[in-house]
């Protein structure tokens, strides 16, 4: 957490101004995304943001409250019932509970999550169509082919793509720059609809294309889930993800 790279050259004042405009809300979409990307890696920026949040928060009370409809809580309740809090600290306490229940449930919730699908960026769709055409036009390969666009669960930005030339050979391709915080690593997972739990496909280096052969697994199938989680260095200590999901998506046949 002491690693204040990559923009630490910014003066304390500039950093504070950026944090102020971020909290105030006047940054445009690109600048907001940039700040949100930097926050996990830059304690100084994070602290400046927290300071501005604390200073300005009392003034949110100028806004009149609005009573939410009863159905809203039910919706929230349903969404959270199916997913454990993704804390590393609570992973152990959840293990017992999780093993008693069908493990697929939280994955189902993610699949149904509105946020996941709401704004999958135009770029990813364009890329996807481009890739689909590329694969469809290549007559050399036989059998079903699949493609997965992995997006961030919260901000619906495409980050990676899985391209499968066959049901065994897949390629994980980065679409966007991703910074792995110090002491952490990206781990790649997959789960088909009828599997009891996710299977690790190993650790992944950010911003590098990775080729994999699914030798020990059933052939890739429609709707199969893929995700990248942020785990402590060395990967998840359990046979399932313990860190937060960074990117997630499902296989679509072409």
């Amino acid at each position: 957490m002491t690693d204040d790279a990559p923009n630490s050259s910014m003066s304390a004042e500039t950093l504070d101004e950026l944090a102020g405009e971020y909290v105030l809300g006047t940054l445009d979409a690109t600048a907001r995304r940039d700040v949100e990307r930097r926050l996990p890696q830059e304690p100084a920026l994070r602290e400046a943001v927290v300071r501005w949040e604390s200073r300005l928060a009392p003034y949110a009370s100028m806004v009149e409250p609005l009573t939410p409809p009863p159905a809203l809580w039910s919706r929230i309740e349903r969404s959270v019932a199916e997913r454990p809090a993704d804390a590393e600290t609570t992973a152990a306490s959840h293990t017992a509970k999780m093993s008693d229940s069908p493990r697929g449930s939280s994955w189902g919730a993610l699949w149904q999550s509105l946020t996941l699908w709401r704004g999958v960026s135009l770029a990813s769709i364009v890329t996807a169509i481009g890739l689909a055409l590329l694969l469809a036009l290549n007559p050399a390969e036989r059998g079903p082919r699949y493609m997965v666009v992995l997006s961030t669960p919260q901000h619906t930005q495409a980050g990676w793509m899985v391209q499968a030339g066959s049901q065994r050979d897949i390629e994980l391709i980065p679409l966007d720059d991703f910074q792995v915080p110090a002491g952490k690593t990206l781990e790649f997972w997959t789960k088909a609809d009828d599997w009891s739990g996710p299977v690790s496909l190993g650790l992944v280096e950010a911003n590098r294309t990775r080729r994999l052969t699914l030798d020990d697994l059933p052939p890739l199938e429609e709707n199969q889930l893929f995700e990248l989680t942020l785990e402590n260095a060395g990967g998840s200590p359990l046979d399932r993800p313990t860190g937060p999901i960074q990117f997630i998506g499902r296989a679509v046949s072409l």
Binding site: L66, P68, P69, L72, R75, I76, S79, V80, R83, A85, D86, A87, E88, T89, T90, S113, L114, T115, Q154, P244
Partner: peptide, 18 residues
């Protein structure tokens, strides 16, 4: 839309509480 965002906010609060 505001209600959708409150839904997402509480899901985030739940998953990021740690």
């Amino acid at each position: 839309l505001a209600e959708d965002i409150i839904h997402d906010a509480f899901v985030n609060i739940w998953t990021k509480a740690h």
